[in-house]
Design a protein around this nucleic acid. Structure first.
Lengths: 276, 276
DNA sequence: AATGCGGTTCGGCAATACCGAACGAGGAGC
DNA sequence: GCTCCTCGTTCGGTATTGCCGAACCGCATT
């Protein structure tokens, strides 16, 4: 089974003394968690962490012990090396599935992953940008190492563009001005005009296509879903290898993605009716 | 679509000044994260948090700001109420899928959820106890709010018992002595002898059954998987509503779960051969 | 208008979180 | 075998820093 790794532009926090009225030791601790999580899968040693943090070993140890007590990191049995703790997966699970959208979307995206054999993700609309919340991998097929809880580049991802297309043209311009147009591949949109033409197409056909704009050989389809007010709350996207077989049926797969998004919209409207 | 909520005995951390050589402010901050995550889905206010923490509002604010900078919590736009942040889902996703078992298990448990229509979970063997790592919900069917990153009660969960059955009888006795036999339902094992008899059956049939021992109306099937050394690294479990239709075919479903666990074992052995 | 509640800012005090030195242990290298 | 280096851990001293309380502002309620 092949595994394809998609690396995302990560913030990889540096939350050190920017300004005061922040608690420095907590910021250090959170940085430490980040390093442990980003660290190699065979764990990270105290000294490595202390060096990376530019902190004394004793201070680092105190921080690590505190984090270990809370389950954020874990010192496995042989050799005192530190690993990501179970509290992280517990909190992540809780934080993700608490979001009302996630609960609704789950069964639909599972179905879509079956129908398409692609990796499906759900993004929420975070001020015009796509933020990925949950995922459903296609069983058996090639699996993508897509990340959750991160913001995708707006102009190259199908989910990002699907959400953009719901905004006014002036809003789109403002967002792109803020975020820029990072070039990822040859096919990445390099001008606002080019992107806007794509956006027009998306509005026409109701779903977005990312044809190797983010990663060579990878293509995605995305469609937005809405709440009862008509506001765009997020988008669902399907990621797969660009194959000639699938290429001929883009419209068919796009229709499936769109249908899935529409189902989520329908359920979101139902939910809001029966509650509050 | 009905949703069934299974509440688990949570540690719900109190990591205050147990002993020194821990960093108090970090412990406070982590407690704060916990409260925000556990809090209502419409967010938690600063004052509520300060009161719950028995901290002054100003200190709580400083902590929250630091957490917000790192993305652990998030203050949504209207009204400054605090929500779980995206860093949590990002770190959780990273921490879970970093585990080599998870990657391998994913496609198998998806398949099993399809075949059985049940909620599938993967647990790792954490010193004889089952710790849940990842999950696959059955599309369309009733969904269980099972939690990840938490330790299940060993004597009532199918995954827990499947792992226990791999240990020596003396080790089992020691673990039960430490953890006790919390009574969950009428069918929960109330004596070590009763549990041991169950364990014997599990060793015989190769998979464990939890027949309403944890939650009334819910039953589970669990089977252990192993690495190349023959060591038990974890277990896979299927959770579903106890229906008469399924009851007649327990052996069939049990066989599917066992087959899934065996597939994971096979792949684990393959992986260890081709690597290190 | 008055009262209460929630969020924010600021200055001062004391707790406390950091550091550095010192020690024991393990491994590599000569 | 010995040394040397690295790593993890412990322990006080010191000054940094995180906490508090008071005051202020905005908003809603009475």
């Amino acid at each position: 089974m092949r595994v394809l790794r998609i690396i995302r532009t990560m913030s990889m926090g540096e939350y050190m003394p920017d300004t005061s009225d922040r608690v420095a030791s907590v910021a250090r601790a959170l940085n430490l968690v980040e390093r442990v999580v980003q660290g190699p899968s065979d764990g990270t040693s105290l000294s490595e962490l202390a060096r990376a943090m530019e902190l004394s070993k004793s201070s680092t140890l105190a921080l690590l012990r505190t984090l270990a007590d809370a389950g954020y990191v874990r010192a496995r049995d042989p050799g005192p090396r530190y690993f990501p703790g179970m509290a992280l997966v517990r909190l992540g699970d809780l934080s993700g599935s608490t979001q009302p959208i996630d609960e609704i979307a789950q069964s639909y995206i599972h179905q879509l992953s079956q129908e398409t054999g692609m990796t499906i993700r759900v993004a929420i609309n975070d001020g015009g940008r796509a933020m990925f919340l949950s995922r459903a991998d296609a069983p058996g097929a090639i699996r993508f190492h897509t990340m959750l809880g991160v913001r995708e580049l707006t102009h190259v991802s199908s989910a990002g563009k699907a959400i953009l297309a719901q905004l006014g043209n002036d809003e789109i311009a403002k967002i792109i001005e803020e975020d820029g147009l990072e070039v990822r591949t040859k096919k990445t949109h390099k001008t606002l005009a080019s992107l806007m033409k794509d956006i027009e197409d998306i509005r026409e056909r109701k779903y977005a296509i990312d044809d190797e704009e983010d990663v060579d050989g990878v293509f995605c389809l995305g469609a937005a879903f809405f709440d009862h007010t008509g506001e765009c709350v997020g988008a669902v996207s399907a990621t797969g290898i660009k194959s000639s077989a699938r290429e001929k049926r883009v419209a068919f797969y796009g229709g499936l993605v769109l249908k899935c998004a529409e189902s989520i919209t329908r359920e979101l409207r139902g939910k809001s009716r029966e509650r509050r």
